[in-house]
Amino acid sequence: MLCAVYNGKPAMLCLNQLRKTFGTLVAVDDLSLEIGRGEVFGLLGPNGAGKTTTVNLAVGLLAPDHGTVTLDGGGSPTDPKVRAKIGVAPQALALYDELSGEENVAFFAKLQGLTGRMLAERVRWSLNFVDLWDRRGDRMSTYSGGMKRRLNLAVAVVHDPPFLLLDEPTVGVDPQSRNAIFDNILVLKEQGRTVIYTTHYMEEAQRLCDRVGIIDQGKLLALDTVDELIAAHGGKSVLTVERTDGEVSVETDDPLAELDKLRQQGELLRFRVDRPDLERVFLNLTGRHLRD
């Protein structure tokens, strides 16, 4: 399958019938998807669904047992020239505690081939971008959890890559840092970068992502915009009314019409409408059993 063009725009990433196993465990099973340039794509799934394996396949850290990964019009992520276009913020904080924030960013920038003035400018830009310039000289071991996550993002963007892979970038951070990271991602989106964003937090995906793919047991269960996913898999809205004789809940496609009908039957004290959201889509698709 060729996917040089997606939705009228050149595709940034194309995963074609990917399969990856570890022993008897099938981590990714016949997974295909295309991601367009400038798109923020959310990859959702419960623990052990295959998100990180998919990410590792996409950036060339793992070789697929079957299928192909092409990036930026046909290049393989194992090619250093292609890999230079990728910025990765791994789920684990992959940084050096005993180096300062600036040293961490500069070190990874050098590995990307930056030198001299360009190196200094990009380090300064990325630290300013995540609002850590003032703490650049402090060792990372002294940073808070949120600062470490922001530094993780700074390292991912220091070489100005057009394609970013952010693996659960807001795990364990306070609301302030989380919002700061959201703002960073929206800026990156405005700059036209392509972002793959994996997360457990549905509201994050709903807020940030143009499209969302839901993966479980290595298979892609659904792939569309948030609104379309909700329409297809979210089910009906739930109207709950409180009357003098008790509380009534009704599933409906038209809560206003249903509310009007119930009002004619008697006096209503209070009412509430629960609209379907991405979380309900996620649970409907992946089930409610625990994934330990």
């Binding site: 850290l61 990765v88 992959a94 081939g113």
Partner: peptide, 14 residues
């Protein structure tokens, strides 16, 4: 174990 090796391997170096 700390994951920095993964990050090093995502850099365009062998």
């Amino acid at each position: 174990t700390k994951g920095t090796l993964v990050r090093l391997r995502t850099a365009p170096i062998g």
